[in-house]
Structure formats: C-alpha cells, structure tokens
Write a protein that binds this DNA or RNA. Structure first.
Length: 569
DNA sequence: ATAGGGTTAG
C-alpha cells in the first residue's frame, strides 16, 4: 500500500531521475583493508573480540576516535545476538562521518543493509550526508531511491542535506528546482535550515536580492529567520561591498525582529568595512562590540584586523593588535602570523618575515603552504630568487606539497629575473605533479613571456588555450595588448583590441590605458587621443593613469599645445 | 542530525 506522501515521493523520484545514478559506488578506499587497518593486530591481542557485556561496548562506541576501532566495533556489533539497538549502529555511523571518513561510513551503511541490520531514516540521512560531503550528491539521490524501496521516507533533514550538496557543487539551478519541488509537492515543509541553505546558494551566485526575498517569504510562511539566516545574507552583502545594505538588514534584524547580533554578525561587518578601508567605522563597531557584554571579539575578529592592517602596509598596527589579543588571552594561530609574515613580505622586510617564520615552531605553530607562499613571493619580489628557490624546496622537505600558488609565484620570480628556461622547466614539473594551471598562472606566464620578448611563445600559448574560459579573461587581453605593444608589435595589439568586440568582451580602464600607451609609444598621438575621447562615450571614463600616459605621449613628441589642452579639460 | 564567519598566499 502506498501512502499519499509516498506516492508523491515516487513521482518526485521519477521527476528527478536525472539526479539518480544507477547505484551508489563505494570507492575502493572505503575498503577496510586499507592502510587505516594496519594497527588491527593490537586490537586483536586485546580483549576487543571477547564478548565483554554491554557496558564497555556502550562506553566504547561513544568515543570511537580511530577508524579501526569503528570497524572492529562494527564487526562485534553485527555478530551479537540479539543485535545491538539501531541507535547504537547510528551512533557509530555518525562517529565515522564526524571523523570525515565518508566513504568508510558509506561502506558501513551498505554493510548494515546487506547483513540485515535494520536501517532508519536517521541512518539514511547520515549516509546521504556522506555522499554530499564527498561532492557526490548524485549518489546521495541514488541512495534516496534505494532507501525509498526500503520504505524509508525522506524528511526535512534528508532534503536539506541534498539541497546543500547541490549548492556545494554549484548546481544552483537544480537546487532551486528541488527547493520549489519540496514546497509545491509538499514533500516536506522547509525549516529554518532548509531556507538558510537555499539562501546561501542564492547568495553564492550573487543573487542577494532574491535571497532577501526568500528571507521575507520564509517569515510570511511562518518560519522565523534567526541570526544564522540574517548572518548568511549580511555576510554575502559585505563580501559584495554592499555594506550599507548589510547594515540596513542588520538594523532590521535587531530593531524590527528583536534578534540580537552575535560575534559572526560583527565579524562579517568588520571584514566588509576593512575591505573598504573604512577604519573609523571599524573602530566604532569594535567599541560597540566591547559594550555588548554578551559578545567579545574572538580569534577571527583579531585575524580580520591583523590581515586588514597588513594588507594596507600598516604592520605596526597589526603588531599592536596581536599584542592586544595576547593580553586578552586570545591565542594567535597560524592564520594570524601568516598575515603578519605576508605584511612584512609585501614591504620587502624579508629579515623580519624570516625571523618571524623561524620563531613559529617555538610558538607551537606549524607553517603551512600559505606561510611558504608568502615568503616565496617576498623573496621573488626582492629578486632574491635563490632564497625563494631554497624555500620552495623546503616545502617538500617539510612534508607539505607546493600548490598552484607556490608554482605560480616561483614562475613569476623566474620570469622577473629573465630565467625563462628555468621557468619552462618548473612549469613542466608543475604539470607532472598533476597541478592544473589556473587563470592566474596563465596570466603570470603570458606576462612573463611578454616582458622577456618571447613574442612567438606568447602567441602560441594564447592560441593553444583556444576557446577556454581564460580566453574570455579581460586581464589576459590587457597583458597581451600591453606586451605586444612593448615588443614592438602594435599591429597585433590593435588586432587584439579589435578582437575584444568580436568576443563580446568589455574593455576596462586598464585595457584602454594599455592601448593608449601602445599608440603613444609609436607616436600615433591622433589615434591615441581618439581612443581617449572614446572612453567616456563607452561608459569607461579614463582615470589618472590613462591621463598620465597620454600626457607623457604629448610631452615626448613635444606637442605642447595638446598638453595645454589636455591640462585644461 | 541538516545551516552562518574564518581561507591567510600567486
């Protein structure tokens, strides 16, 4: 017999057949005969296989900290007669999932199914969550189909989890479709978590307005938004530099809804203000935070401040923040010091950066790849390429793996000192490590080749990339137009500039400026001036740099009348 | 049980 809700479910699953793959693949790594199990003998020699009553078992499954323990416990559990309660199995599954051994957790779940241990909605939800956390949401849907055949009815937890999975995989269209379907087919009533998940997805794709609309809608539908929901939107607005809207929403939350902000609300707002260098307001917010007895700045608050000061070159202020946090008993972590190291590096204070780096161990902190990358960048910018290379090799020696940023930084450094051959070798090494260059790597290489006058290589690399996303990156064109001009290939630069229109790419101020600069370099002042005038009409008015470039062009040609004109307008 | 910040680096 099919209940009303289960028949709805059936049609839901049919409708979503595109979500569903044939079966759930359990990867080999989920096998228990993996390196994880190597310490099995120690457990064998202990009394773990002896039946030792319910008490020790009960206390053990609650604190499973190792995967081996979990598997051994599971073996014991399925052999017991009568079987331990489903709750215990679920707690074990949950423990394994919490340890982030998702495929192992799925493996156990599958074992439960095949050995006839009853499974509940709760077990299914854990298993589905594992799929989603492994970015295999499709498998989650497949699992839902399997469970449906076992008469398990998905609930709001199931759907919230699947919705989150889709959003984590950037499948926003499908997420929206699922969300609408939940409501339309009354598969479950979305709760505050479901709404927040959908709102997060909308924000992630820049749809802040729609997200706010959904926030209003949930309220109308009788689901009161809480601090988390408001924080989700406030943070997104701050990230998109819409700080006024963020404050508006925050005020609404406090004064109209009576919901108090928490430290996360403050951190989002402070971060947003820092990004806009609105320091007065930052300190106002900090003061407000101090006055609120419920809230005090936490590690993240301080890290935001340290990082913001460092990025602005205000390293002394950053150091002062660290002193204050220490005074207050907030312990700086590696993120704190990474920002400070980066601050020193950006100012070329490599001795300071290095000595801070060397002192990390005594602070009980372990440098990570980010730490090294800052140092690499610092040494490269100071043209201390040998030091940089030394650090680069140290990454591997310390058991870390250089990432795409490490390689890109080194490439930039090598190009800067004209060591193109070594750059090429490093690039090949990077590829052999399975690292895929991203748009930033690509820009660095193109820029490096241009600056080293390797015109042919630049163009062949550009054509090699073909119709990829990188070919639609305006910054790439800026580099190429500038590079070609400087290599004396103004015709190519011009062609590229023309080509933008064909591509449907919008030139920005920098594009125009490099083109103006290129034309001035060849003494083509009329054409440069024409382009300069065109900028305003194209909705992209020239900035100080463009102005200077043109001015210098006139000065070089001793066109003093034009200089006068330019200075007057 | 399912949700919000941080993530610092090219």
């Amino acid at each position: 017999m099919m209940t009303r809700s289960s028949s709805r479910l059936h049609s839901f699953i049919k409708l979503n057949c595109n979500f569903i793959t044939n079966s759930v693949r359990i990867p080999l790594s989920s096998s228990r005969f993996t390196p994880h199990s190597t310490s099995l003998p120690s457990l064998l020699h202990s009394n773990s296989f002896a039946y030792n009553g319910d008490r020790p078992l009960l206390s053990r499954y609650q604190k499973v900290t190792k995967l081996d323990d979990a598997f051994n416990l599971f073996d014991e559990m399925i052999q017991r007669k009568p079987l331990p309660s489903l709750i215990k199995f679920n707690q074990l599954l949950n423990a394994v999932a919490k340890m982030k051994h998702f495929s192992s957790c799925l493996h156990l779940f599958k074992q439960m199914c095949v050995t006839g241990v009853p499974v509940s909605e709760y077990s299914m939800n854990i298993a589905i969550r594992c799929c989603c956390q492994m970015s295999r949401t499709n498998d989650g849907f497949a699992l839902l189909g399997c469970c449906f055949r076992r008469a398990l009815v998905p609930d709001v937890f199931t759907f919230s989890t699947l919705l989150d999975g889709l959003i984590c995989e950037d499948r926003i269209i499908e997420a929206e479709r699922l969300f609408k379907k939940l409501i339309k087919h009354r598969l479950c009533e979305p709760n505050v978590v479901t709404y927040n998940t959908m709102i997060k997805g909308l924000c992630k794709f820049g749809n802040n307005d729609i997200a706010i609309g959904l926030l209003r809608l949930m309220d109308e539908r009788g689901c009161k938004p809480n601090t988390v929901v408001y924080n989700t939107v406030i943070d997104s607005l701050c990230k998109d530099k819409m700080i006024e809207d963020a404050f508006k929403l925050c005020n609404e939350m406090v004064f109209a809804k009576g919901i108090q902000p928490d430290v996360i609300t403050y951190n989002s707002l402070i971060h947003g203000l820092c990004n806009l260098c609105r320091w007065d307001e930052v300190s106002k917010l900090l003061k407000e935070m101090e006055e609120d007895v419920r809230i005090s700045p936490d590690l993240q608050t301080f890290n935001i401040l340290v990082d913001a000061f460092c990025k602005e070159g205000m390293v002394d202020e950053a150091e002062a923040v660290i002193d204050i946090m220490v005074e207050r008993g907030v312990v700086p972590n590696i993120v704190t010091y990474n920002s400070l190291i980066d601050g020193y590096c950006l100012r070329g204070e490599m001795t300071k950066a290095r000595s801070l780096f060397d002192s990390l161990t005594s602070k009980g902190l372990v440098p990570n790849v980010v730490t090294y990358n800052s140092l690499l960048n610092g040494y490269c910018k100071s043209l201390k390429i040998e030091e940089a290379m030394h650090m680069f090799h140290e990454i591997t020696r310390k058991g870390l793996k250089p990432d795409i940023v490490s390689y890109s930084t080194m490439l930039q450094g090598l190009f800067r000192v004209g060591r193109c051959g070594e750059a090429r070798k490093l690039f090949d090494e990077m590829r052999s490590q399975g690292l895929i260059p991203d748009e930033c790597t690509y820009r660095i290489i193109l820029d490096g080749l241009c600056n080293n006058h390797q015109v042919e290589d630049v163009l062949s690399l550009f054509h090699l990339v073909g119709d990829s996303k990188l070919n639609y990156d305006i910054q790439v064109y800026n580099i190429l137009i500038d590079g070609m001009s400087k290599c004396g290939k103004l015709d190519i630069a011009r062609d590229l500039f023309q080509y933008l229109t064909v591509k449907g790419l919008q030139p920005n101020v920098r594009t125009y400026t490099v083109m103006v600069s290129g034309l001035c370099g060849e003494g083509l002042l009329k054409e440069a001036n024409h382009l300069f005038r065109k900028m305003g009409e194209s909705g992209c008015p020239p900035d100080g740099v463009t102005y200077n470039v043109l001015l210098q062009g006139y000065l070089k040609k001793q066109n003093y009348d034009d200089v006068k004109m330019l200075l007057q307008c």
